[in-house]
Amino acid sequence: MKFRKGIPILYSSDVLRSVAYYTSVLGFDNHWTWGDPPTFAGISKDSFEIFFCEKGQGNPGTWMSVFVDKVDEYHDLIKSRGAQILVPPVDREWGVREMLVQDPDAHKIRFGCGISIRDKSSVSLPEQVRIVVRKPSLEEELSLVASVGWTATGGVADQQRLNQLVFSVVAEDTQTGTAIGCAEVASDLASIYYIKNVIVRPEWQNQRIGAALMQAVTHWIDANALEDALVTLFTGENLAPFYRQFGFNPGYGMTRKPGNKK
């Protein structure tokens, strides 16, 4: 027995709107509708098809993955047409370069293409380095902070802050057991996820360790954060290109010092 073909059926609040979005914005070539007025429809491009059912057969917010041959070229095309791109193309550690797109019914499509072993090598780590899901000890964090010229008191408040982290990763030198980098996430586990203390010791920088730390953090947030949560971090303009590869873009905001001091 052979399985011939699979076609996802997506919930649609308005099948004509769904068809219009997928054809005029996402570039699907063919479409059809069923009923008068239409309550069922389908679109296709090459060998891939999607069906839509009006107000039935599912719920908003379904996820699916679609493979294309040139994801960056496709990104530029649909961006120019007004597609809602949640995450631009980025290399993933599982061997796919992909972006995340949302349609009018909050369905999320991971458009991606495979990357070669040579492409993947750009995010590989030195042999003696490993990324471990754990919190840095207070001593480790203070040492990392000092290595990049930041300051911390090392008091009770710092330990309490470490204890309250919802996720963190540490880069370790397996030959010495030393923490050579870290990245931390603070959150209310509802509306906001704040990435902080992304640190790599200066002597270990420019070896993709920071990228590996950020990959681990963003993968965890993507898997655990609520759909409408805000994921944020603060950085200087010189590091903006580094964080942009993980889907971060400049945003508008305001800050306030305690006591409303200027």
Rank of each mutant, 00 (worst) to 15 (best):
K2D: 07
K5D: 11
P8D: 06
R17S: 14
Y21I: 04
L26A: 09
G27V: 05
G27I: 02
F28W: 08
N30M: 14
H31Y: 15
D36E: 15
P37L: 11
P38I: 07
K45C: 04
D46L: 02
E49T: 10
E49Q: 15
C53H: 13
E54A: 09
P60C: 08
T62M: 13
M64V: 07
S65Y: 13
D69I: 13
K70R: 14
V71Q: 04
D72V: 11
D76M: 10
L77V: 11
Q84W: 00
V87W: 03
E93R: 09
W94K: 04
R97K: 15
M99A: 04
L100G: 00
D105C: 03
A106L: 15
H107A: 10
R110S: 10
F111K: 03
K120N: 09
V123Y: 01
V129L: 07
R130M: 11
I131M: 09
P136Y: 01
E139V: 14
E139L: 09
L142V: 05
V145C: 08
A146Q: 10
G149H: 06
W150G: 11
T153E: 15
Q160K: 15
L162W: 11
L165C: 03
A171S: 04
A171N: 04
E172D: 00
E172R: 00
T174W: 09
T178Y: 00
T178W: 00
A179G: 03
A179L: 03
I180T: 11
I180F: 05
C182R: 07
A186W: 06
A190N: 13
I192Y: 07
N197L: 02
V200N: 01
V200C: 05
Q205I: 03
M214P: 03
Q215S: 14
A216H: 05
I221G: 07
A223P: 05
N224G: 12
L226R: 15
D228G: 08
L230H: 08
L230C: 13
L230I: 14
G236P: 03
E237P: 00
N238I: 13
Y243E: 06
R244A: 15
G247F: 08
P250F: 01
P250I: 11
Y252L: 13
M254V: 13
P258G: 10
G259L: 12
G259Q: 09
K261C: 06
K262Y: 13
